[in-house]
Design a protein around this nucleic acid. Structure first.
Lengths: 213, 213
DNA sequence: CAATAAAGGTGACTTAGGTCACCGATGAGT
DNA sequence: ACTCATCGGTGACCTAAGTCACCTTTATTG
């Protein structure tokens, strides 16, 4: 019953795993559901398992000393949290905060399995390396943006990324939300958005933004 | 002869590698020397080997579109370049620039070996994961600084990191160099340094800075 | 439907930090 | 000793972006 559910999640999002690996994951993994806005991972938390996302959407944030947040990237079904892998392997605490933005289901793999999986299953091994690589690059892109770009460029990049990642042309978000993700302030974002609207790049509405390019 | 040189480098900086692994590295690795200011890796370059640093000092930069540089972290003897590992595995191009700051020797390991090493040698496997983890955290710290901190805090952090990493209380660097690493401008750095000097934290000299805390 | 909260707009102001112009001090090479 | 490049100091100025105050519009709820 529960086994079949896990089976179908793996088949739809991790179909590239070899059959034996799937079997191990089905036997040892457990499903965990998160409601919207629930945290999957908190800064300073100790990891006992690594998480494969099988349903929903997760936002990863870095937290500043004074409690403000900085959005780094999304985790979607088929993704794993690189940080949870690294921390799990090393049994150290998490350095980021992960929050579900919609109801989310994670397949939790106990850390004790990590070493065996890496050694025994080629597809797992490549999946993990691929995950590291993608997140590493994602972080480098984040650094590019905040190190070299001004706020209007960062906003444009942010919006494009949202539209692309979420595969939509209409983004449900308030100006305040964006300001929070970019560690800026609502007024600044509002003003910059208005300029983008004047250039015909977006259409602004209450609680959502349309992409026009 | 050359074999013995590699042997001694490995023994002094990678003594934790298991004997069989050392043998493989000695048989398949080649030493490559870099003069000061030479690049080990350029943005966009394709990687055919992963590099273990056995001598010298390397600075890793992210490059902006307009050619300016942003310092991320040092590689020292005993370190490997996480990026070269990831890119090597995936056979993709490098995303960063690595420059020797003093004469440097790297032990080059052909990418073709990577998979075998990971599977066969536990100490290599842990070394690679440890490398990923450390660099990941280093990048997160970089993001913290540029996302949440003001220039004076970033400068203070930068200096402390230099003094700590280079294990010295007297740093050979010009104000312009620092400005370049932090992607700021010389005048700004000079002014902030002066304030630090007035607070008794550093002593400023031509071409070097002393740490007083 | 009145009350309230949330979202967004806008002008005025402040400030960190980037830029410009120019200076003097230091040190290396001829 | 003279020349020239590099390094660092400084005042004046500019601009992006953060902050404050206050407003209107829209949606929600009792």
């Amino acid at each position: 019953m529960k086994t079949e559910t896990i089976q179908s999640y793996i088949d739809s999002h991790f179909s590239f795993f070899e059959p034996d690996l799937k079997k191990v994951l089905i036997e040892n993994g457990t499903l965990k559901t998160f409601v919207a806005d629930e945290m999957l991972m908190q800064t300073g938390q100790n990891m006992r398992s690594t998480t494969l996302i099988v349903e929903g959407l997760v936002k990863l944030y870095r937290e500043g000393d004074d409690g403000n947040e900085f959005f780094m990237y999304y985790l979607q079904p088929g993704n794993a949290c690189a940080l949870s892998m690294i921390c799990a392997t090393k049994q150290e605490t998490s350095e980021v905060m992960a929050k579900a933005v919609e109801p989310t289901i994670g397949l939790m793999i106990p850390i004790s399995l990590m070493d065996t999986l890496m050694k025994e299953y080629k597809t797992w091994y490549y999946f993990v390396l691929e995950t590291y690589r993608n997140r590493f690059e994602e972080l480098l892109t984040v650094i590019d943006n905040i190190a070299f770009k001004s706020m209007d460029e960062r906003l444009a990049f942010y919006l494009e990324k949202q539209f692309k990642d979420l595969k939509t042309r209409s983004l449900s978000v308030t100006h305040g939300d964006i300001a929070n993700d970019l560690n800026s302030s609502r007024e600044v974002i509002s003003r910059l958005l208005k300029k983008m609207e004047q250039r015909g790049e977006v259409a602004l509405h209450r609680n959502y933004i349309q992409y026009l390019k």
